[in-house]
Design a protein around this nucleic acid. Structure first.
Lengths: 209, 209
DNA sequence: GTCTATAATCAGATAGAC
DNA sequence: GTCTATCTGATTATAGAC
């Protein structure tokens, strides 16, 4: 254990995960987004998707194998896009406090987005039926955030973290569960906690000790 | 603000939330658990529930108004039961470190249970269609945990927390998101982190500073 | 490739016998 | 109260015209 290598290997999305679609396929996917996110997998009918997309049902079946094929293609695309939006612009450098605050704010803004929350809910709800989707999502959106953070901690031993990976788990996990509690379990109505208060206390806990 | 009162009022389940059921109704509910937890709301058919419960479909409709009525009755019951299992035996007293470790271990054990995870997933997936269920769940299972902790912090000012509620948010949130990452997004397969490591680092972060 | 029309099945909910 | 049988509409998927 002499080299500073990550203790977990992250499998990043490759070019094979970014298939390109024809305009017709784009129309289908765009229509499918609305319905799947609102009604869930079983609650979505192909008729509804066809109507929303402005194409016939048979056209959907000729481009995507079946309902499962359409659903997985759509979910994979949305997951990868979120991944890009989350981490494309982020380069973890600068002073620890400013960096961590910027990371937390960016991450929270991204995952508290309405469409994002709906995607999150859908993948959780279908995690048993579509485990590969859940794994892809976990690897790209959740683990990648932890990975960036723990790498930063590892390369800044002056912060004094003996277990950077666990701290990253706690840091990112607090952000994720905040959104779950506030947006999905309606905590913003029953027991609100401002984003600033969360971030301030999280930074205090991690840095000022 | 001179008295030590909780800053958020928790609405606890009352006796009205514990309806009693006849043996026939118990059989129906017991059959419905299996199917709803495995197939989701839309994916569950009343025929299937009837078969699983060993009764006729009409019997279900005569005891519960319709599919929604059966589903909400079942979810409410499971939520309340989990709430009891979580907090009935727990009294927060003793030394901070031992207390917090015991709390974290009990909480994790409870919410990492297979049936519990399935309930969690189902309520998240149906949170848009059944917001009242999500609110009930959030109030009883999640907020109640935070409430117990922040109360404890508030009554032990020697711990030096300027914002007990936010710290409780982070503490309980880390536990919840750990289970989400490990059990729902299959983190135990792709990037495992032991329960002990999480708890140890969480306690370090909160207490030893 | 795209559409209209249709097949085959299954859903939630009810009627009526016992 | 409970069951069997049934109704009505919606669902996935396909056939065949253009």
């Amino acid at each position: 254990m002499s080299k500073l290598v990550p203790s977990t290997e992250i499998v990043l999305p490759t070019k094979a995960d970014f298939p390109s679609y024809t305009p017709k396929q784009e129309a289908i996917l765009q229509g499918a987004v609305q319905v799947f996110l609102r009604c869930g997998y079983a609650g979505t009918s192909m008729d509804r998707v066809a109507a929303e997309a402005g194409v016939s049902k048979q056209t959907i079946y000729s481009h995507f194998q079946d309902k499962e094929g359409l659903f997985t293609a759509l979910m994979e695309r949305m997951t990868i896009r979120r991944f890009q939006a989350l981490f494309h612009t982020e380069t973890l450098c600068g002073e620890p406090e400013a960096l961590l605050r910027r990371f937390a704010e960016t991450y929270l803004t991204q995952i508290a987005d309405k469409e994002y929350v709906a995607l999150f809910q859908l993948i959780i709800g279908e995690s048993a039926r579509f485990p590969e989707l859940a794994k892809l999502y976990g690897r790209t959106v959740i683990q990648q955030g932890r990975h960036l953070m723990s790498d930063y901690f590892r390369h800044h031993p002056e912060l004094g973290f003996t277990d950077p990976e666990a701290i990253a788990h706690i840091f990112v996990g607090s952000l994720v569960s905040y959104v779950v509690a506030q947006e999905i379990f309606y905590g913003n109505e029953t027991s609100p906690l401002s984003r600033d208060r969360l971030i301030e206390n999280l930074l205090n806990l991690v840095l000022h000790r």
